[in-house]
Amino acid sequence: MRQFGLFYRKEMLEMARSYKWIWVPMVFLLLGVMQPVTTYYMPEILKHAGNMPAGTIITMPTPTAGEVLAQTLNQFGTIGVLVLVLSMMGIVSGERQSGVTSLIFTKPVSFIAYMTAKWASMLTLTAAAFACGYAGACYYTIQLIGSLDVGTVIQAGLMYMLWFVFVISVLLLISAWLPNSAGVAFTTMAFIMLLSFGTSLLSRYLSWSPSRLSTIASEILTKVETLSSVGPVLWISLCSILICVMLAVYRMQSQESISAKA
């Protein structure tokens, strides 16, 4: 536990010194704010965009506040996930590649503390970034589009956050496996995209898939009757997160050689 605190504080400090604590939340804030603003200005932008004959009337259904927020979550699901993965892809492999692990692991350290501290630090940064972006999105949506129900917003937010936790757990597991950062980022993105795509394609069979979390969050906001029951998805997601972290620890522990260079 003492070592967990030590590792965790070190990760926090590293994230601060590499400016991650500024740029990742800022990107999320920007993502969150952009969606309501573009939605708001869309009619005017369209009006001025094409050379349409005078008198053309564009009728667009004005999206509800909930729909706008759901679209924002979509942005988080693509660009947001990419930013998270890219910003944290080197969290394990960077240390192993540089060789600093040979100083760390010759000390009496626990692999459980080492890996879970990394996981917790990723979780902290992700939560902070998501909170920033989501809060910004809510604020602008209320200002520009219409009011939101606080309970719904929080419920959807928590649901979406769990999806992010799943993503970083997968990232941690793949980090324990692959020796280089680019490979980690690519494999994680490929896995997440395949999972999301597969789930939407075979939604009937994969109604328990963790990637349903993001869909459920949107459905809560847009008040669409959800087709899947939330319970199994929550349980499967929590179990997958736990399994990912445990496997990642196990993998680190059982490696023949700790530093990537033999």
Binding site: G99, V100, T106, K107, P108
Partner: peptide
């Protein structure tokens, strides 16, 4: 055990003092 590898690599963003303290606490 105390160990010094052939080409020791540290966290380049830490200061020398911070790293030695960190190592001590890890030990």
């Amino acid at each position: 055990l105390g160990y010094l590898p052939q080409m020791p690599v540290f966290y380049s963003w830490m200061t020398g003092r911070e790293f030695v303290q960190y190592a001590g606490q890890l030990a």
